[in-house]
Amino acid sequence: MIEVEIEDEAWTAALPAAAALVERAAAAALGPAQGDIVALLTDDAAVRDLNARFRGKDRPTNVLSFPAAGSAAPHLGDLVLAFGVCAAEADAQGKTLADHLSHLTVHGVLHLLGRDHEIAAEAEAMEAEERAILARLGVADPYRSDAADV
């Protein structure tokens, strides 16, 4: 089950289909894996608070992933996405908010499944997996330097 909670109405004001996009991207990233995910679409202040408390970084970020203890079904973990940061990044990168939200959801779910990007080899593998999932969703490669031209 993928549950989407919308705490900041800016998400639906800018993107009425935000919940459906998150559900679709999360399901694609899960693939055959089993487990529940909760995604919270909130504001920068809420994400800043969580980022400070859990990562020691006193600033908002685009997406936070919180794997459940043991990372086993039924609950895999939670995602939290900040509207202001995501919207600003999409604009700066010449992407639609829908595509950026799909990408960040896929990225976050892969973290819940144990993928990481701390070292170069892990980053390359994770980015390749993201590209493949996003391609199936019809989302352009977010890592291409000319992605804004697509």
Rank of each mutant, 00 (worst) to 15 (best):
D116V: 05
L41G: 00
A33M: 10
T12E: 05
F83K: 01
S65T: 13
K57F: 13
L21H: 07
V80N: 01
V47W: 00
L134W: 02
I119F: 04
N62Y: 01
D91I: 15
A28R: 07
S65A: 15
I37R: 01
R53V: 13
L76G: 09
S71E: 12
R131Q: 12
I119E: 14
L40C: 09
H117S: 05
V106K: 08
A73V: 05
E89Q: 13
D58Q: 07
V80K: 00
D8W: 04
P60Y: 02
D141N: 14
A19T: 02
E130I: 05
R55A: 12
A39H: 02
A45D: 14
E118K: 01
G94E: 11
A128S: 10
A98Q: 15
S65K: 13
I2R: 01
V4Y: 00
R59W: 07
L104N: 13
A39Y: 01
D43N: 03
A148P: 14
A128F: 14
R144K: 08
V38C: 11
F83S: 02
A46P: 03
A20S: 15
L41E: 02
G56W: 05
G31L: 13
Q34I: 15
H117G: 10
D78N: 05
E3Y: 13
H75E: 09
D141Q: 08
A90K: 01
R48P: 05
A13S: 15
P32S: 13
A147E: 10
P74R: 09
T61L: 10
A26Y: 03
A123L: 06
A120S: 04
E5I: 13
A19M: 14
E122P: 02
E122C: 12
G84I: 04
V85T: 06
T42F: 08
V109P: 07
I37G: 05
N62P: 09
V150K: 07
R55N: 11
A25D: 08
R59D: 15
A20E: 14
A88M: 05
V150Q: 10
A13E: 03
D8G: 06
E118L: 08
A148Q: 06
A123S: 11
L40N: 06
S145Q: 14
I119D: 12
E7L: 03
M126T: 10
H103C: 06
H117C: 09
G31R: 12
V109G: 04
R53L: 15
E118Y: 04
D141P: 14
E5F: 07
R48N: 09
Q34E: 13
L104R: 08
S65G: 13
A18G: 11
S145C: 09
D58R: 12
